[in-house]
Design a protein around this nucleic acid. Structure first.
Lengths: 142, 142
DNA sequence: TCAATAGTTTAGAATAATTATAATATATTA
DNA sequence: TAATATATTATAATTATTCTAAACTATTGA
């Protein structure tokens, strides 16, 4: 359980002012055992539920994007209608459960990161990620 | 170059009425050599340019979704702000050029489809796809 | 310590993408 | 060809996100 002081330092050291709102958002995002996959709306709801306090939606957007830019969050696009963020910023793979729209981190070793035998010329590979879409067997699949 | 009659048959055989609009959209989508990656807006613009005729945007949406449901198109989510569709409906991998926002099909053999060593229990794997994000070397990467 | 300033937050407006509505038109069926 | 089922359309509604500009807060340094 990280303390405010630690978040304060972390924010300041990355050039972000440690405001009340940002610290609260840190609490919600990073004071947890597991990876958190969320949409901005999820997060906003979570904040008002857990902290019993309202933070302007615009601020939640600003903060999430600031955190993403600093590398504390990662954005993941599975389907067009929702943008997910992930507190696990390491290069990793995902399962996406099409029944529940749930995004699940792949544990190390479950999927080997594939080798890219030929890259686009003049470009650098920034990431290689695998997305495995699953659903219950009887479901009509996309 | 497929002819109208062929599209007509194909549509009818999948339970879609071969309307004027759908046939025109088929022409634009499927009468080409290469895979076509597009957003719905791209497609709408393409139609009015190539065919010199306007199809209501709602119809373009309806049609694209109908085609997707029938498996003639595939939806691809790379980043949250845009939803791409792909006329290549086979299981395949992509490069995404972060400089130009261009989506590029991976030729067979460039990337081996990774093995999934352990699946979510009770679920069936519907797809396994790799996305390789690239950018020019000097670019600041995400 | 306090004023100046730079950076943040906020509500609400603006925008953009997509979906819904309901009237009109078209294709299919019998 | 009439009855019906399905599609198309313009427009309205919705939703997610970004913009704006005013009010507020943190930082700096005199």
């Amino acid at each position: 359980m990280l303390k405010n002081a630690e978040f304060t330092d972390k924010l300041r050291s990355s050039g972000l002012r440690p405001t009340k709102q940002r610290l609260k958002i840190c609490e919600v995002l990073f004071n947890r055992d597991n990876t958190f996959h969320f949409t901005i709306n999820d997060l906003a709801k979570n904040i008002s539920k857990v902290l019993n306090e309202r933070i302007s939606l615009a601020t939640v957007y600003n903060t999430v994007h600031a955190f993403k830019k600093k590398g504390y969050l990662k954005e993941i696009s599975i389907n067009s209608d929702k943008s997910y963020f992930d507190t696990n910023t390491t290069n990793h793979h995902h399962f996406f459960d099409e029944d529940t729209n749930e995004l699940i981190d792949c544990d190390d070793g479950i999927i080997e990161t594939p080798k890219i035998k030929k890259n686009i010329s003049g470009k650098k590979i920034n990431s290689v990620e695998v997305l495995v879409k699953v659903a219950t067997d009887n479901q009509n699949q996309k």
